Simulated assay, not measured.
Amino acid sequence: MTQPALTRASTMGPVVEFVARGGGCVARVFRSAELPLRLAEQPDLLVPLRDQFRLIECAARELGDDALPARLAREAGVAGLGPWAQRFCAAPSLRRAIETGIGDCALLLQSATHMALTVDGPLARWTYRITERTPVGRQKNELLAMGYMISVLRWYAGASWAPDRLDMPGPRLPGRASVESLNGCDVTHGEVAAVVFPAHLLDVPNPRTGCFRSEDDPTSLPGAEDLVGYVRELVRLSLLDGRPHRAWVARRLGLTVRTLQRRLQAQGTSFADVVRGISRAQAAVLLRRPEASVTEVAYELGYADPAHFTRAFVDWYGQSPQRWRREH
């Protein structure tokens, strides 16, 4: 069974800052999208793509700003692409950057995503398409993605550069005039979302090789058939709101709780085993932070009582959290 698409939280851009700056209610936006507010502090976490769609849609409605996705991408720039940005910003030329980024997108940044580069005479088209069916937010997501693509192009062509046009599929684009003003080009109807620009730019060398370095090595997204990998990522996400719940995870996978349990058993594991594994690894990460007390770590991992966390930690590591911290 193919699992729902995932994307990195960094692709949402500075949505919290924009909503707060615009006088909106950040908590209401995240609550409407059924996502933990603390997600904004964890840009490398993986999020169901449908949830990202819904969050951006809710934020745009909260502010009454249909051009919000374009603003988010412009503000975030290439850094909003997280570790994947390294693929673009370290390439020797724009052509090589796009080709490398296309090859790595579905592996490192966002699954169920197809990008392509074509050249037709004097014009190049860099296209973006989501292969998963989504009920809401598709057009907003396309605007967000093309904003990031323009940021990559500007890395090579200059900060004031603008594309020839943007192609947008689907119905009439709300906020079209604002989108055109932000990106400095016309928006026209097309069969697939695309940034259209002069083909000669593909040969432009990287003017800033070596000045962008990601501190993190990009980790691959779980494969589309990797149920256990998907459950792990959803457990990491749900830990931001306390102890993970089977029903929350199952709903995002389009499964009943019973079906989720049965399929995990067929893979030789269980939901409780996955939670224990994630909590065990995360406890070691958090305890290495000197500013975090054992009580704070316990609450961060969803334990209502630090004593319960301590007992679990002793089972995992054979010693108390305090002693483990001293030794490590």
Rank of each mutant, 00 (worst) to 15 (best):
A91H: 07
P92H: 12
P92N: 06
L94G: 10
R95M: 09
R95T: 11
R96C: 07
R96W: 06
A97L: 03
I98D: 03
E99F: 07
T100K: 10
G101M: 06
G101H: 05
I102K: 11
G103F: 05
D104N: 05
C105E: 14
L107Y: 12
L108M: 13
L109W: 03
Q110W: 03
Q110R: 13
S111P: 03
S111F: 04
S111V: 12
T113W: 07
T113D: 10
H114Y: 13
H114N: 06
A116G: 06
A116Y: 02
L117V: 09
L117Y: 08
T118Q: 04
T118E: 15
G121C: 11
L123G: 00
L123C: 07
W126T: 09
W126D: 05
T127R: 15
T127W: 02
T127A: 06
T131C: 14
E132F: 01
R133H: 10
P135W: 11
V136E: 15
V136D: 08
G137E: 01
Q139E: 07
Q139Y: 01
K140G: 04
K140F: 05
N141F: 03
E142D: 11
E142Q: 15
A145S: 15
G147Q: 12
G147D: 08
Y148G: 04
Y148C: 08
S151N: 09
V152M: 11
L153K: 04
L153R: 03
R154N: 14
Y156N: 06
Y156K: 12
Y156E: 13
A157Y: 12
G158T: 12
A159E: 13
S160V: 06
S160T: 11
A162R: 10
P163V: 15
R165M: 10
M168K: 00
M168L: 04
P169A: 14
P169V: 13
G170W: 10
P171S: 13
P171H: 06
L173N: 05
P174R: 11
R176E: 05
R176T: 00
R176P: 01
R176Q: 02
A177K: 07
A177V: 02
S178E: 05
S178K: 00
V179M: 01
S181N: 09
L182M: 04
N183Q: 14
N183D: 12
G184T: 06
D186I: 12
T188S: 04
T188C: 04
H189L: 07
H189F: 11
G190A: 10
V192S: 08
A194N: 03
A194K: 04
V195F: 08
V195Q: 12
P198C: 08
P198W: 05
A199S: 09
H200G: 09
H200R: 15
H200V: 14
L202H: 03
N206K: 00
N206H: 11
R208Y: 15
R208I: 13
R208A: 15
T209Y: 09
T209S: 14
T209A: 15
G210H: 05
G210L: 02
F212N: 14
R213Q: 06
S214N: 09
S214H: 07
E215Y: 01
E215M: 09
D217G: 10
D217W: 02
P218V: 08
T219G: 09
S220P: 03
S220C: 12
S220T: 15
L221N: 02
P222H: 09
P222W: 14
G223M: 08
E225I: 07
D226F: 08
L227W: 05
L227T: 11
V228P: 10
Y230H: 15
Y230W: 14
V231Q: 01
V231E: 03
V231W: 13
V231P: 01
